[in-house]
Every structure is written in structure tokens, then in C-alpha cells.
């Protein structure tokens, strides 16, 4: 959980905790220049681990 994230980034008051998948798990699209890419990959295992934290909290 990342409680320090700026409120602007979550859009809503009184949300439950949220999880940002850390950058090291996000792989930007290698077919696009570094500063232009908007596409990315992230594995299902990493997301499921985060989801589990939520479902069991």
C-alpha cells in the first residue's frame, strides 16, 4: 500500500487503500522511444499478488 500518493492521483475522497504496481514491474513498450511510449506490459502474477492483498484486507 502506498498511503503517500498525492490525492490528485486517486480522484475521489474517502477511497479505501490502493496499490500502485511498482515501476520495476512495468515494462514500457520496447518498440517505442523511451519518452514517447504509453504502452506497457505487466505480468498477471504481479497483479494477482496485489489483488490478493486487497481481497484479504
Amino acid at each position: 500500500m502506498n498511503p503517500d500518493i498525492d490525492q490528485r492521483q486517486v480522484f475521489a475522497e474517502n477511497l479505501k487503500p490502493y496499490i500502485v504496481i511498482p515501476a520495476e514491474h512495468i515494462i514500457d513498450d520496447p518498440n517505442e522511444p523511451r519518452y514517447q511510449t504509453r504502452n506497457y506490459s505487466v505480468s498477471g502474477d504481479v497483479i494477482f499478488d496485489a489483488l490478493r492483498n486487497i481481497l484479504e484486507s
Binding site: K16, Y18, A23, D28, Q36, R38, I54
Partner: peptide, 29 residues
Amino acid sequence: SASVVTFGSGMTLPCLCPALSQIYLRSFT
């Protein structure tokens, strides 16, 4: 009950549910 969304306006609707926790996916850019 939970959502997995890319950072951006796609987060807006699931943000509405106070019972919801979110997972944000966001690239370096």
C-alpha cells in the same frame, strides 16, 4: 470490490465505489 486499471481517466468510474480498492498500472512515462 476491487479494480485493476491503467492510470488515467479509466480510474474514474471505479473510484466512485467507497468499498473498492484499486490497483493502478502506470508506465514510466
